[in-house]
Amino acid sequence: MPGPAPYRRFVALGDSFTEGVGDSDPDRPNGLRGWADRVAEVLAARAAAAGEDFGYANLAIRGRKLVPVLEEQVEPAIALQPDLVTLYAGANDIVRPKVDLDALAVAYDEGVERLTTTGAQIVLFTAFDPGQGGLYAPIRGRFALYNEHVREIADRHGAVVADSWRIAHRLPGGLVASDARLWDVDRMHLGPAGHQFVAMMVLDALGLADHGLEPVPLAEALAVPRLQRARADLDWARRHLAPWVQRRLTGRSSGDTITPRRPGLAPIE
C-alpha cells in the first residue's frame, strides 16, 4: 500500500523564475508551465497514489523585486496553510545598478521567519552562477554574496536549499548552467529544459529523488560562426535587452498588469 503523501498543500512564491516564464504552455494560466508546476505534478501523483487530496498555488509575479514579493505574497501564502513553500526572490534586485544585499537579507530573513509559523517545509534557492562571461558576469560577486545570505537564512530557519549555483554538478553530459540550451531566447529566463532541471533539483533537495523526471533532450550544441553570433547578439539586444532597459528607466515592470496565475490551492493535472 502507498504510504502517506509527503506534501499536500504546496504554495510557490517569487518572481518570473517561479511564475514559469520561458516555459510556455498555452493551456495553463498565464500561458506558462515552469518548474513549480512540474514539481506539483509529481507531488499530486504521489498524493493520488496514497488516496489523498493535493492542492497547489502559485503566487509568483514576473518582475517583482524581493521586498514586494514578501509584502504581497507571504501573508496570502500563510493564509493557505501550506505544508510546503518555495520562495525565490532577489534576482531583480541584484541586476539593478545599485543594491544593498545586506539590507535585502534582513528583509528576506524576516519573511522566511513569518513563513515558518505555518510549520511548512520551506525551500529557498541560491542564484545561478552567471560565469565569467556574458551579460551578468560583471556582477558575479553580487550573486555569490546573495547566495551566502540565502544559505545562512536557510540554516537559521531549518529551510532546504535548492542550490542553483551548484546545479552544474547535477547536470548530465558536462553541461553547465550557462549553457544557452537551458535558457529561453531572451537569455534572462529558463527555457523548458532549464525548468525541468530546476524541478528535478527541488525534488532531490526534498529527498524525493525517485521522482521519475528525466532531463529534457537537448539539441546538439553546434559551433556558431562569429558573424552569425554577432548578428544574433544584435537581434537579442534589440528585441529583449532594449525593452528591459526601457522598463528600468521608466519605472515600469513586466508584471505590472499580471496577477497570480494560481492564487488559491487547487488540483493540478
Rank of each mutant, 00 (worst) to 15 (best):
Q228D: 09
P215V: 05
P215Y: 05
V224Y: 07
G212L: 10
A205S: 15
R231G: 11
L206F: 03
V224R: 14
L208H: 06
L213F: 07
L203Y: 03
L208Y: 05
A219I: 07
E214D: 07
L218K: 07
A230V: 09
V216G: 09
Q228T: 14
P217M: 06
L222R: 15
D204A: 06
A209M: 10
H211P: 03
L222M: 14
E220K: 11
A199C: 01
Q228I: 13
L218I: 05
E214K: 11
L241P: 01
G207F: 09
V216Q: 13
H240C: 10
P225A: 07
A219W: 07
L234V: 10
P215T: 04
R238L: 13
M201C: 03
A221R: 15
P217S: 09
P215M: 05
L206S: 08
D235M: 01
A230R: 11
A237N: 03
D235V: 04
P225V: 06
V224D: 10
M200N: 05
D233G: 02
D235S: 05
D210P: 11
A205T: 10
R229Q: 04
L206V: 06
V198L: 15
A232R: 15
Q228N: 02
E214A: 15
G207I: 13
A230Y: 00
L218E: 00
L206D: 07
Q228K: 08
A221Y: 02
L206Y: 01
R229F: 03
P217W: 12
R229K: 08
L241R: 01
H240I: 09
R238Y: 09
A221L: 12
A230P: 03
R231H: 07
V224H: 08
L241Q: 06
R229L: 07
R238V: 14
E220G: 10
H240G: 02
H240L: 06
E220V: 15
V216D: 12
L213E: 04
V224W: 08
W236T: 12
L222W: 04
V198E: 06
W236R: 03
Q228S: 07
D210K: 11
V198C: 09
V216P: 13
L213D: 11
R229Y: 01
V216W: 09
L218W: 05
L241W: 00
A199Y: 04
R231C: 12
E214R: 12
L241V: 05
A221F: 04
D233H: 06
R229S: 04
A199D: 01
R231F: 14
L241S: 03
R238W: 15
R238P: 04
L206Q: 04
V198S: 11
A199M: 02
E220Y: 01
M201Y: 00
A223R: 15
H211L: 06
P215S: 03
R226V: 10
L227C: 02
H240P: 02
L218G: 01
A232W: 11
R229V: 00
A205C: 08
P225C: 02
L218T: 03
P217G: 12
G207H: 13
V202E: 01
D210S: 12
M200Q: 15
L206G: 01
D235L: 07
A199L: 02
E220N: 09
P217F: 08
M200S: 12
L222N: 11
R238I: 11
A237C: 08
L208S: 11
A223Q: 14
R238Q: 09
V202Q: 00
L206E: 04
